[in-house]
């Protein structure tokens, strides 16, 4: 057994242990902490699977923002959480479910073992046209050139999710600001972190967006880091979430998707198809779309964590 395979085995065991802990923990708080650790371990797996772009996204979202969201919900619902044992389903029911889930796992495992060899791949096709897009990172080329429609729809899905979250606000709070994310027991370390980390995080986020054209990175990864920095300053009580009816908030949220859509429609005249880039301008357009989407995605992610408006509009 080589060292690399031993490392992979150890990693797989740790992940399974964390997953079992997340499912089996008696109360919600330890389960969510286990889930965050699970997300961070998955980041290592993505590196082992030669997918650094996915690793960056998983670290920022799976380990970071989802954790903040779930921990926040846990602490708000803690008072209503019933004692762990009282509402468990009966043993035969759990055994039946466990049996069926084991069957499902076995079926998927069989599929994994029976995957065709050599594996079908689109890597040569992706590499062949890479020079036409001008970018060096094939994943960015897939996201913003070959499958740009997916990414456009994804930025629309993010906005739809935010509209969905906002629409849950009681009528009297519509247009107001989400509740403050500031922790009740604030200590010096969090406000120090809230002041020291964001400048570093924002530079890192901008760098990851910029370098994403040619190296691992890109707008979602960078935007998530910038969004996380915003959430951090809100949690440290240094900033409060903005009122959602303000025009600048709406403009920042929509700007990325609107610019992307405008470039896509301009493609009809300039390059003969929706979302086609005119020859020679592909890279500059891709970078421009990435920059426009970065701010919008960062703001959307931050406001998704902040939740629906919970305060009346200040007059």
């Amino acid at each position: 057994m080589t060292f690399a395979l031993a490392f992979d085995c150890g990693l797989a065991v740790l992940i399974l242990a964390m997953a079992i802990w997340t499912i089996a923990a008696r109360t919600t708080f330890p389960a969510v902490v286990g889930f965050v650790a699970y997300g961070l371990l998955l980041t290592l797996v993505w590196m082992r699977l030669a997918a650094p772009d996915v690793a960056l996204t998983e670290a920022a979202i799976g380990g970071g923002l989802t954790g903040v969201l779930l921990l926040g919900a846990t602490s708000r619902l803690r008072a209503t959480e019933p004692p762990a044992v009282s509402e468990r389903p009966s043993v035969p029911f759990r055994l039946a479910v466990a049996g069926l889930c084991t069957l499902l796992s076995a079926a998927i495992a069989a599929v994994v073992l029976l995957l065709p060899d050599p594996a079908p791949t689109l890597a040569p096709e992706a590499a062949a046209k890479l020079s036409l897009t001008g970018v060096g990172n094939a994943v960015t080329a897939v996201l913003l050139a070959y499958r740009a429609l997916d990414t456009l729809l994804e930025s629309a899905v993010l906005l739809l999710a935010l509209v969905g979250v906002w629409s849950l606000a009681p009528d009297r709070f519509w247009g107001g600001a989400p509740r403050s994310l500031a922790l009740r027991h604030r200590d010096g370390s969090l406000s120090l972190l809230g002041q020291v980390l964001p400048p570093i995080g924002i530079v890192l986020g901008v760098y990851i967006v910029w370098v994403g054209a040619d190296a691992p990175g890109g707008k979602f990864q960078g935007a998530t880091i910038i969004g996380a920095m915003w959430v951090l300053t809100m949690m440290a009580g240094l900033q409060t979430p903005p009122e959602i009816s303000q025009a600048w908030v709406r403009v920042i949220l929509v700007a990325g998707a609107a610019f992307f859509l405008a470039v896509g429609i301009a493609g009809f005249w300039l390059a003969g198809a929706f979302l086609a880039y005119p020859t020679g301008f592909a890279k500059s357009l891709i970078v421009a779309i990435e920059v426009a989407l970065t701010l919008s995605v960062a703001a959307t992610l931050g406001l998704l964590v902040a939740g629906p408006p919970a305060r009346p509009v200040r007059t």
């Binding site: 996204t57 979202i61 993010l158 979250v165 995605v297």
Partner: peptide, 30 residues
């Protein structure tokens, strides 16, 4: 990962789909 080729460590198409998927999963969770 199995679909290595053209000097890449893995097939970039499923990787890009996963990045999209992670972001959409987050918005659905929110």
């Amino acid at each position: 990962r199995r679909g290595t080729g053209a000097g890449m460590g893995g097939d970039p198409v499923p990787q890009a789909l996963v990045i999209t998927g992670i972001v959409v999963a987050f918005s659905a969770t929110a």
